[in-house]
Design a binder for these strands. Sequence first.
DNA 1: TTCTAACTCAGAACGGCGTTCAGACTTTGT
DNA 2: ACAAAGTCTGAACGCCGTTCTGAGTTAGAA
Lengths: 237, 237
Amino acid sequence: MRAQTTAEIKAIALKHLSEGGPDAVSLRAIGREMGMSGSAIYSYFDTRDALITTLINDIYTSLLDQVESARDAVPPDDIAGRIVAWGQAVRLWSLSNPQGFRLIYGDPVAGYHAPTGGPAPEAAKRACLGLTELAAAAWPRAKATQAFIEHQWSDFSPGLADTVREHFPDLPPAAVALALRMWGRMHGLIALEVYGHLGTQTGDPAKLYHAELLDLLRSLGLQVEHVRHPGTPRASA
Amino acid sequence: MRAQTTAEIKAIALKHLSEGGPDAVSLRAIGREMGMSGSAIYSYFDTRDALITTLINDIYTSLLDQVESARDAVPPDDIAGRIVAWGQAVRLWSLSNPQGFRLIYGDPVAGYHAPTGGPAPEAAKRACLGLTELAAAAWPRAKATQAFIEHQWSDFSPGLADTVREHFPDLPPAAVALALRMWGRMHGLIALEVYGHLGTQTGDPAKLYHAELLDLLRSLGLQVEHVRHPGTPRASA
DNA sequence: TTCTAACTCAGAACGGCGTTCAGACTTTGT
DNA sequence: ACAAAGTCTGAACGCCGTTCTGAGTTAGAA
């Protein structure tokens, strides 16, 4: 069965990725492990970049599955809790799948470039929409402190901007900018931690990241009293 | 002259890096361009990783030269201006040297690992100390809003922690944590922009980043009235 | 000056990689 | 029964880092 062989290729590629990083994903090595010739893979993927692209899609999707499920475990009216749950889920997934994080957000591999003309991947849309939803929910209160943001719809990448505008037709552009800044704020500490720039201790970055999330909530004018300490993974009551 | 040949190797390596990314730095290609055999490079660098390491040091140093000089162009009592100058300088350097940014903060190259046991590179110390100095200057006012941070000296990576403690013996650990969070906040949006996750428009990320810096100042309890609009590169009056 | 040690380079070689191609083999549809 | 499509092998090309052998040169000591 063709689908099964394709799945096996992807599974072995994922294993090599998590064990040795993006550069360890080699068609010859995959074929070797499957008892096939390296060139046989070309019956299933046009090129190595095509395999990498599907890996990125799969991994990005798994990240968003986990993040959205963590967010949805918190009641919709607990905006602060949903934001913290989202942020903690992103970090925990990234620490559990550092190579996946590198593949999505870092240099995927030598000379790889995503299909620029094509539509934005589904997972990227979900990430953008999820963050925008959080920002939109927080916007009524955040407006007071974040009013200095000036932004326009036209500033955004066309594909994602259309998707966001379709889902949130009445949202002020400043709220979308807020979503991107929330993204950046979560991404910064996680990237530094994943790439080993925050030192070697394990407990410390968790405290640091939790403090950052609390400060983010404060920026949005949200209450923080009922948010749990980072000792527990799920960070909202 | 040995030093001159070494410098030429580094120069060509830097050129290949900026043109084709970290994977374009190949010993054979460098030798080809110098009219030498590929193996001749081994008289000057023990291995390719050694060359990459010196490139990282050089590039990191150039980043900190630029950032420190931008910071020092602002009077020491203008703390907000110095923070914004630092942040804007980091972003402008990163956009001018995207491949350098990837080399320092991303996956440098296949299977590369920095000498873990050795002392922290000089440039990393300067980055850490510079940010800590800014955080220390802002701490008297930031204390009021950032008091929820709990942190301990022992949490940090030994090498850098010793250096920081040596320069700022009386600084509360929470201020060091604040410095790391400032770093993460700047790094997040810059990394997303350098790696192309913020869309293709050019004007937008600048506004976004400037808004983030303003919000950072607000988090620190600093005045923001006299900070210029991002249209001008140097962002403090 | 002569001898020796160190340094610098070329070139072949090994194993790894992505990719292409010709050919053999199997499966499927008619 | 025959043709078309798909699947796989193995060789080949050019790229890479790295190692090794062996020339050629340089510099210092006897």
